[in-house]
């Protein structure tokens, strides 16, 4: 998707608890990106606090804009377009980025584009030098989403399966809370799982015993609670619970990925979203890809989680195709991915 003339797009991501800005150049690729994580801000509360998140985005947007332009060696007037995440996400957080992005584009007299957050994640692997060709299967696993998507091209997404209740990352966060661990819960549970023995307790692999590609992680909470209630509270029990919980989530994702690859015949698997940083899952999916004879792609870790680069990239492709937002500011807390216009 690279062209001979440069078209430079600023991307702004503020859908949850990361403020991410980046500049993508259609000719030279990613020029710069900057991120401010609010994890520390929310750690005391054990999760993202919407009001705090919005305020923090507002505070960080302009300093990050200066930072990213300076790193790219550009001035504001060098921007040819502005793309911002308009949904799905927390409405106040989204509006902070949408208002800043739309206003900046208006002031610079360049087109603006509202980007779907999940499209950003789906296209993030295309930021890498070793990038997958279309079509590919994408497993998107984060705190807010667990989806298997058939990606035929930009804006051509078929949702093959998704979580019917808790997202995989959300299940990690909640189990972390039950185990008395801190926020964010994913890395804390994974670290504890390293010291534990999966299989001492046996949790189900939800919905793997029936056809279909949907997920359900809510019921695992009950199994964790039952084991914790039936055993003395000590470090070994907690570690073994963490290990079996992680094994259950990883194996469930694995079974569904395998099924989706076989059903679609797709040859490339892309794994994205915050949970894709989980080491146990990465190694299990590498084994799967060898067994199935497909290639697996993991975006670099900083682009697995929320970031501005993926929004700049997605926005650049759509702006180049002539799409643009009218002069209004809108955010969509819920926004079905399969309603996007294909390119």
């Amino acid at each position: 998707m690279q062209s001979n003339t440069s078209f430079r797009v600023l991307g702004i991501e503020t859908s949850c608890d990361e403020t991410g800005l980046a500049v993508f150049d259609s000719r030279y690729g990613l020029l710069a990106h900057a991120l401010h994580s609010q994890v520390q801000l929310h750690a005391d509360y054990g999760g993202v606090v919407p009001e705090l998140a919005s305020r923090d985005h507002i505070r960080k947007l302009l300093p990050l804009l200066r930072e990213v332009l300076s790193a790219a060696g550009l001035g504001r007037s060098d921007l040819d377009g502005v793309a911002y995440t308009a949904g799905p996400g927390l409405v106040g957080a989204l509006l902070a980025g949408a208002a800043a992005g739309r206003a900046l584009a208006w002031a610079l007299d360049v087109p603006a584009l509202a980007v779907h957050h999940m499209e950003g994640h789906l296209l993030a692997p295309l930021l890498e030098a070793d990038r997958p060709e279309f079509p590919f299967l994408c497993l998107l696993v984060s705190g807010g989403h667990t989806q298997l998507i058939d990606v035929a091209g930009i804006g051509r997404y078929g949702i093959l399966g998704e979580s019917l209740d808790d997202a995989a990352g959300e299940a990690f966060d909640k189990v972390a809370k039950m185990l008395g661990l801190g926020y964010p819960g994913g890395p804390a549970v994974a670290a504890l799982a390293e010291r534990g023995m999966p299989g001492r307790f046996r949790f189900p692999r939800p919905m793997t015993d029936r056809p279909g590609l949907d997920f359900s992680f809510s019921g695992l909470k009950t199994h964790v609670l039952q084991v914790l209630a039936a055993h003395p509270d000590n470090a070994d029990v907690r570690a073994d619970v963490a290990a079996e919980f992680q094994a259950a989530v990883v194996e469930t994702l694995l079974v569904k990925c395998r099924r989706a690859l076989r059903e679609t015949g797709l040859q490339r698997l892309v794994v994205s979203g915050g949970v894709s940083a989980n080491r146990a899952m990465r190694s299990a999916l590498r084994v799967l890809s060898e067994e199935e004879g497909v290639r697996v792609y993991f975006p670099r870790l900083e682009f697995c989680t929320d970031n501005g680069a993926m929004i700049a990239y997605a926005g650049c492709q759509r702006l180049l195709a002539g799409q643009a937002e009218p002069l209004r500011i809108a955010a969509y807390p819920r926004w079905p991915l399969d309603t996007l216009a294909p390119l």
Binding site: G47, V48, P88, E162, D166, K174
Partner: peptide, 12 residues
Amino acid sequence: AVKSPTFTLVEE
């Protein structure tokens, strides 16, 4: 699906 609203605050 009946998703947990923990992340979004409200599901409609």
